[in-house]
Structure formats: C-alpha cells, structure tokens
Amino acid sequence: MPTPTPAASSMRRTLPDICFEIRNKIDAFLCEETDDDVLRKVQNQVRVSIDVIGEALRRYGLEHVSLSYNGGKDCLVLLVLIMACLPAWASSSRPSPPDFDVTTMSTPPQAPTSESAVSSNAAPTTRPLQAIYIVSPHPFAEVEDFVCSSAEQYHLDLKRYALPMRPALEAYLKDRPAVKAIFLGTRRTDPHGEFLSHFNPTDEGWPQFMRVHPVIDWHYVEIWAFIRHLGIPFCELYNRGFTSLGGVTDTRPNPALAVRGEASKFRPAYELRDDDEERLGRD
C-alpha cells in the first residue's frame, strides 16, 4: 500500500476540524465488529491509551504537557490518539455555563461523562499541542520532511533541537518552563522500556518531568494495523523496508524484509510480524 498523501487543503484545516475528524474515525473504529484478531487487540489498546492520555490531560492540563515527536510510527500513533482526546478534554475543562466560542463557531455542550462519550458538537481547544523534536546527528531527509509536513498538518507547536537527548531536554524545559509532563511513544520492546509503566518520573540527574507512555504495551503489528486501518500518512522510508528510524549512519532497511534474490529490494515495514525483529536494521 503506498503512503497516503494528505491533500493540500488539509494543511489549511483548523485544529478543531482535524481533532473532530480523527475522533470520529477512532470512535467508528472502536464500534466496528471484526473477526480480525489483531484489530480487536488494537481496539482494546486504543481504549487503554485514550484513558492514559485523558488522565494526563486532567492531571496537568494541555498547557503543561508536550509530546516527544520524531516522525516515527510509534509517536505518530500517539500523536493521533492525543488529537482524538482534545475535544473531550476541552469540553470537560471548559467553565460552566459555556459561552459562544468564536474560534470554533460552536457552542460547547455539557461536558461528556467519559473520554469515549465525546460529542462531535463539542468545541475543542484551539491551543496547539506542544512538541519537542530531538534531531538525529545525521537525519534522513525523508524524516525531516515528514516531521515538517506532519507538524504543519496537526498544528504542532514544535521546537527542534540538534543536541543529544539530555541537553536537548534541558534546553527545551528552559524554553518551555511550563511543561510538567511529556508524552513518549516508547513501547515495552524498546531499549529501556521493559519496566516502564504509564506514568514514570524522569531518573535522578535528568531534567525533571513526568514521562507518560500511553502506547507502552502496544505490539509492532498493532501499531501498523492502526496506522493502515485509519489511513494515517506516514514517513515514506517505511515503504522501503525501514522498521525503526534513527540516522543515516546507524539505520538501514530491515534484513528480515529483504526480497529473496534481490539484494537491494525490501518489503514494506508493515509486513514484519515479530517484535523481536523490529530493530534488526539498527546498529
């Protein structure tokens, strides 16, 4: 399947419109009846992740959270799920009685009773989601392009740092001192992910904030099932056999996806099935 390309008009759509469209897609997906075991598991994973994101928004508020974003598949899924949660969070956090909101041209109804019960008539916040992009020392041009285009598409307030992780986080929190929690697309099979939970403070000696891991228990095939079932645009490198994106000096197409008899041809990333083989293309 080729990478979906967002229409030029989608780049000019408002943040509320984008949030509502995503939320409606996810609500429809959660209501689907399917015989596909992977999709059923994805539905359960989505429900858990939405609850974690909603809890983080209730604890900290949108102005105090951020997203670690590098254009990879895991943080892309996380970004889409956060977008889906913003209408419910904004509606439930809006003072009562609500006033007419000229930024969204709608009158917010009463707050929904749960994250999953959001009405498509609720008025989401127009505050962009804050995000940090820690750039690889030798980034792929395709990754840079996708980060730029998707940040524009989803209206991210993105800060870019070409620094190692610790000084990048220190610089970011200096630039954004209100940030108290950062969403991460870490999964349990990632390095250092084995013992993480949904909420973990940073370790001693690191910049202090709450790390939030809504997709920690997702499996590789579930990430791709979600992306492809919902038609989410993704970085084109994944169509060339890359399964885990780093920089040009430490990342290559996954050998497990090599087409037999053709040394330079690889199947797309979403055809890989085993979590343990995901990082075979990383040095």
Rank of each mutant, 00 (worst) to 15 (best):
residue 246 G to D: 02
residue 138 H to V: 04
residue 232 I to L: 07
residue 250 D to H: 03
residue 168 A to N: 06
residue 201 P to W: 12
residue 167 P to V: 12
residue 124 P to I: 06
residue 192 H to M: 09
residue 235 C to Q: 02
residue 221 V to M: 06
residue 170 E to S: 15
residue 241 G to V: 02
residue 172 Y to L: 12
residue 228 R to A: 09
residue 210 M to V: 10
residue 142 E to H: 06
residue 232 I to Q: 05
residue 257 L to D: 03
residue 182 I to E: 07
residue 148 C to V: 10
residue 211 R to D: 07
residue 236 E to V: 15
residue 207 P to Y: 08
residue 131 A to D: 09
residue 163 L to A: 10
residue 237 L to I: 10
residue 203 D to T: 12
residue 153 Q to W: 15
residue 208 Q to L: 08
residue 196 L to A: 08
residue 147 V to M: 09
residue 255 P to F: 06
residue 245 L to H: 02
residue 206 W to V: 00
residue 215 V to S: 03
residue 213 H to D: 07
residue 152 E to N: 08
residue 161 Y to N: 09
residue 219 H to E: 13
residue 185 G to Q: 10
residue 201 P to M: 04
residue 181 A to D: 05
residue 185 G to H: 05
residue 215 V to I: 14
residue 204 E to F: 03
residue 127 R to D: 12
residue 233 P to A: 12
residue 125 T to K: 02
residue 200 N to L: 01
residue 159 K to H: 14
residue 141 A to S: 13
residue 207 P to K: 06
residue 179 V to L: 11
residue 195 F to K: 13
residue 173 L to C: 13
residue 158 L to E: 06
residue 196 L to M: 12
residue 154 Y to D: 04
residue 178 A to I: 14
residue 145 D to C: 08
residue 221 V to Q: 11
residue 156 L to T: 07
residue 190 D to M: 11
residue 244 S to H: 01
residue 134 I to G: 00
residue 128 P to A: 11
